[in-house]
Simulated scan of single mutants.
Amino acid sequence: MSASPFFRSQAGYRSRPATTADAREIHRLVAACEHRLHDRATTDADGIAADLRQPGLDLAYDTVLVHDDGGRLAGWAWVRGRRSTVDVHPDHLGRGLGRSLLAWAEARARRRGGDRLAQTVSDSDRAAVALLRSSGYSPLVTEWLLEIAMPEEPVVPEPPEGILVRPFRPGDGHAVHRLAEDAFDEWQQRRQSYEEWALHTVGRATFEPAASPIAFAGDRMVGAVLSLNGPGGDEGYVERVAVRHDHRNRGIARMLLREAFRAFYVNGMRTCTLWTHSDTGALSLYKRIGMTVRRSSTVYSKELAPGTTGD
């Protein structure tokens, strides 16, 4: 397979586009990066596979893998719309690969007609933060990974009056999708199609229906929590929390989260995590139910001035 279009490989490296068959190799790279920064992997191969299947991502043009002369994956990047990801294996840091991949991502975004590009990096990755800032990126949004320890079975409050709760069932996907997209309309840039949304939620191999409670007011779905089994199988992960606008401030989200925590506890897990960010305003809710910040990341954004597309 030829090199990924317009990526200029450095001496000692060769490049090519990614394929869906590369998910596990890419996951090993990402896990190595996460172990360096956080002493554990927080991404699984299932999540990488979902990223590679994103609608609108043309693997032949929007991804690049960089291997060393020994055939080991040294870095990778993808671009889709205004978002991109760049990862460099810890063994290959300090050789300019990050800067080269960042330049490729910007050139690819321009070539697709993009006027802005954003990347999320861990606040503990000082080298990546320095690279983005020196390249003209500015902080846009703060993200927090929260956790709750569960040494004892979590106590679940009684549902609010008129609310019934049950676990996710086959066939609930489309209704939960509509609920979540309506709930997030106030801050997300665009609505996701069901196919795109399902890739990262109910379509994942790690999706855990038993830890995904849904709330109803009569026949109307008014709230949902969707959960995944986290990497390593030793902790749960809450992927989505959504409550209808007209049923907020009734304790539904708190109740559903505690129900999810209890389900993970029953399955032998003693920790549960979730991500939130500053646009949602939900950090205080999670802290009130006993969650604490494990670590934080920042979304950095840059306006792409017209210029060379890298070809």
Results as ranks from 00 to 15, higher is better:
residue 311 D to H: 08
residue 162 G to D: 10
residue 212 S to F: 06
residue 249 N to W: 04
residue 256 L to E: 04
residue 283 L to E: 01
residue 63 T to N: 12
residue 139 P to L: 02
residue 266 V to R: 15
residue 144 W to Q: 10
residue 186 E to S: 15
residue 139 P to V: 03
residue 51 D to W: 13
residue 22 D to E: 05
residue 281 G to P: 05
residue 203 G to W: 13
residue 67 H to C: 02
residue 4 S to G: 09
residue 4 S to N: 05
residue 58 D to Q: 14
residue 32 A to D: 09
residue 59 L to F: 05
residue 218 G to W: 12
residue 201 T to F: 03
residue 241 V to N: 11
residue 50 A to T: 08
residue 169 R to V: 04
residue 163 I to L: 13
residue 102 L to G: 09
residue 148 I to W: 06
residue 151 P to I: 07
residue 295 R to P: 00
residue 50 A to D: 02
residue 182 D to Y: 06
residue 57 L to C: 05
residue 292 T to I: 11
residue 59 L to K: 07
residue 168 F to C: 03
residue 200 H to P: 01
residue 109 A to D: 02
residue 293 V to K: 01
residue 285 L to M: 13
residue 44 D to F: 04
residue 282 A to G: 07
residue 89 H to V: 02
residue 234 D to R: 07
residue 194 Y to C: 00
residue 311 D to Q: 12
residue 54 Q to Y: 14
residue 253 A to M: 08
residue 114 G to K: 03
residue 86 V to F: 03
residue 42 T to K: 10
residue 66 V to R: 12
residue 4 S to F: 03
residue 137 Y to R: 00
residue 116 R to A: 15
residue 129 V to R: 11
residue 167 P to L: 06
residue 215 A to R: 10
residue 251 G to L: 09
residue 92 H to C: 08
residue 231 P to C: 08
residue 46 D to L: 05
residue 77 A to P: 06
residue 183 A to T: 14
residue 64 V to W: 02
residue 109 A to M: 04
residue 199 L to E: 11
residue 291 M to T: 05
residue 304 L to Y: 07
residue 23 A to T: 10
residue 167 P to A: 14
residue 144 W to C: 06
residue 66 V to S: 06
residue 87 D to K: 12
residue 247 H to R: 15
residue 268 G to L: 13
residue 274 L to I: 05
residue 231 P to A: 10
residue 303 E to K: 09
residue 255 M to C: 14
residue 123 D to G: 11
residue 70 G to H: 09
residue 219 D to Q: 08
residue 160 P to W: 14
residue 136 G to I: 02
residue 268 G to A: 14
residue 103 A to L: 14
residue 130 A to G: 09
residue 82 R to Q: 07
residue 133 R to N: 00
residue 288 R to K: 15
residue 4 S to E: 04
residue 259 E to Q: 14
residue 197 W to A: 04
